[in-house]
């Protein structure tokens, strides 16, 4: 709880005030570590990026991070690279974008080059399999931890509309396997419609 208060205090900060070289180095190393450990889909890396750049470094505030995730998810290409582009650009402009992307692509490039040579031994190794399986439990815990933080914020806003949309989107994707892109497009359309309805109401009153 006290951690969340710290968060809101530093929310209003703009771009972080550190020397550019130090910033770039930190972006690069953060993305290198995060990408090197991102087993599973794009939402795993997005959860880790949220923990690093929002909770730990306070470079980006939470609503903005969610916006960036929505942008990363709806653009072509992998979510990890898209999110790296957005976060790097936000923190340190074009140079930030370049180092964030480099940090993101180096781990898969190195690891896959090595593994494509020793694939048979790697895939059939019992210890590797057990380690990866156990790691999945940690991955799930990280995502649920991030969701608990984000979800409780939405609930505390007490906006029935937003809570309803969160529930509907979850049910659609989790139970009915609706394509994520369609869910985002629906939310987008609803947002535009709401803006026009509110505008009309303002004219009437």
């Amino acid at each position: 709880m006290e951690n969340e208060q710290n968060k809101t205090q530093s929310d209003s900060q703009g771009r972080p005030a550190a020397s550019k070289a130090a910033l770039l180095r930190q972006i690069f190393l953060s993305m290198l570590v995060i990408s090197g450990f991102t087993f599973g889909g794009g939402f795993v890396i997005v959860s880790l990026m949220k923990k690093k750049f929002v909770d730990e470094l306070h470079w980006i505030d939470e609503p903005e991070m969610l916006d960036l995730v929505a942008l990363a998810q709806s653009s072509p290409g992998s979510i990890a690279v898209n999110a790296a582009i957005l976060v790097g650009w936000r923190v340190c402009g074009t140079a930030g974008m370049a180092v964030a992307v480099l940090g993101t692509i180096i781990p898969p490039l190195v690891i896959l080059s090595v593994i494509s040579l020793i694939y048979e031994a790697f895939a059939s190794n019992r210890y590797v399999a057990l380690f990866l399986k156990g790691m999945q439990a940690g991955v799930a815990a990280v995502i649920i931890d991030v969701v608990a933080g984000l979800g409780s914020k939405v609930l505390r806003e007490k906006s029935p509309l937003h809570i309803g949309m969160m529930a509907a989107a979850f049910i659609a994707v989790f139970f009915f396997k609706v394509n994520v892109i369609h869910v985002i497009l629906a939310a987008l359309a609803l947002g535009v419609a709401l803006a026009f309805i509110r505008k009309k109401e303002n004219f009437v009153s």
């Binding site: 939402f43 991030v146 979800g151 969160m166 989107a169 985002i184 803006a195």
Partner: peptide, 20 residues
């Protein structure tokens, strides 16, 4: 639009996490 996208993004992350 962003206001209505944010809760949906939370739901998408939740769905991925629960699946794992």
């Amino acid at each position: 639009v962003l206001g209505s996208l944010r809760p949906v993004v939370v739901a998408l992350i939740a769905s991925a996490g629960l699946g794992i």
